[in-house]
């Protein structure tokens, strides 16, 4: 940062490496396909359990279903009426008893075989992309230099200050916008190091063949049905991350943000005068 001038606002910097940009956009497509085909697979047995086994006569901690024309979501002891969205929904002008509605699934009409083909083919692209990006980020220093919170950044006072700034929608300007803020680093790390690898591992733990070859993976979760539940929960945590991510992109300046992820070039937002 030898070239940093006192007020670099409005300057354009190179922000994202080609590996980051490529992986970002491949993932954007792959994750949508994985989520929507995954919801269709869930539709085949819309109940979740803890432990190694779990079937219709075993207690489910989450269930989506229908009684007549009324859809419901049961979580633990609570029941919610979800008619129209979960359990019962309309497609092509007709009522369907299906856990997740057609507009949220691939394919849109019930087809477990085809949903599995989408999911288990694109899973290779998802896992391969993640592995390639992780290796590239270790080699080129991205993980260590850009994503690792520095010592003082993890101090409670600093973190609290960032939380307050975010709550005021007071986003980084000028020189400070060169780097990710700590909350941003923690969010990216949680997704990159915990959630995405967790999706791959909990997915592998559901494979009877992989459970024979690498029993450590299913043991890590404490059973195949627990792995299936974790897979479901982690999927929604990724959805939550994407929603917050998109809101932050909109707040921080969508055109500048999208351009930086396409071309790599990012214009530092002007500091308030």
């Amino acid at each position: 940062m030898a070239d940093a001038s006192p007020d670099p606002s409005g300057r354009t910097i190179r922000r994202h490496r080609v590996s980051t940009r490529l992986w970002h956009w491949v993932n954007a497509g792959v994750l949508v396909i994985m989520l929507m085909s995954g919801l269709m697979i869930f539709n085949a047995h819309p109940r979740l359990y803890w432990g190694s086994y779990g079937a219709n006569s075993d207690p489910a901690w989450l269930e989506i279903g229908a009684t007549g024309a009324e859809g419901y979501l049961r979580v633990g002891g609570a029941e919610f009426d979800t008619t129209g969205v979960l359990g019962v929904s309309t497609r092509d002008g007709r009522l369907w008893a299906i856990a997740f509605p057609g507009w949220a699934t691939i394919p849109s009409a019930y087809d477990l075989a085809l949903a599995r083909r989408w999911h288990l083919s694109f899973a290779w692209l998802f896992a391969g992309g993640l592995a390639a990006y992780a290796v590239a980020s270790l080699v080129n220093g991205h993980l260590w230099r850009d994503l690792r919170p520095k010592g003082r950044e993890l101090a409670p006072g600093h973190l609290w200050g960032e939380v307050k700034a975010h709550a005021r929608l007071d986003l980084a300007k000028g020189e400070a916008a060169r780097r990710y803020n700590t909350l941003q680093k923690l969010a990216y790390l949680a997704v990159l190091v915990v959630l995405l690898p967790g999706m791959v591992l909990s997915g592998l733990a559901m494979s009877p063949s992989m459970d024979a070859t690498a029993p450590l993976i299913v043991d890590l979760f404490g059973g195949r049905q627990t792995a299936r539940s974790v897979h479901f929960i982690a999927a929604w945590l990724i959805v939550a991350f994407v929603v917050v991510h998109l809101v932050m992109v909109l707040l921080a300046g969508p055109l500048n943000g999208v351009r930086s992820m396409v071309t790599g070039r990012y214009r530092l937002p002007e500091a308030r005068r």
Binding site: R117, H119, L120, F122, S209, M210, D211, T213
Partner: peptide
């Protein structure tokens, strides 16, 4: 062809890394 690639790959990789492995 495209959506069959997952089965094709999984079958070959599973046979390569653990054809003798025993189920729990």
């Amino acid at each position: 062809m495209v959506l069959g690639s997952g089965e094709w790959l999984s079958y070959r990789v599973h046979r390569l890394i653990g054809s003798d492995a025993l189920a729990r």
